[in-house]
């Protein structure tokens, strides 16, 4: 998961982050629980980092009500800097 472009899920509360992590594991999606990146301010302290390849699956889970989160972002890190994009 050391790719320089990845997805970030943010949450209203720590409990929601813990719940979402177990829901994602159940759906066999690779997760990494991380401190919320500093460039995202309006969220609780924990976030979940996911692979870009899984974003469509995550949106599907979200639409079906099987997964709850506050926002979905992508972050791309390159030599020109760090780019944050809000998807949901």
């Amino acid at each position: 998961m050391n790719k320089k472009e990845f997805g970030i899920l943010t949450f209203e509360s720590t409990q929601h982050a813990i719940k979402a992590e177990s829901d994602l594991v159940k759906a066999e999606i690779k997760t990494k629980t991380i401190p919320t990146p500093r460039d995202i301010t309006l969220s609780c302290g924990l976030a979940i980092r996911v692979d870009l390849d899984d974003i469509d699956k995550i949106k599907e889970l979200y639409d079906n009500g099987d997964l709850k989160f506050k926002n979905l972002y992508t972050i791309r890190e390159s030599t020109e800097g760090r780019f944050l994009k809000k998807l949901l």
Partner: peptide, 14 residues
Amino acid sequence: PELGKILMKSLIYT
């Protein structure tokens, strides 16, 4: 313990 586990993961990542 559940919170402790998730905090530890977050720390090692940091």
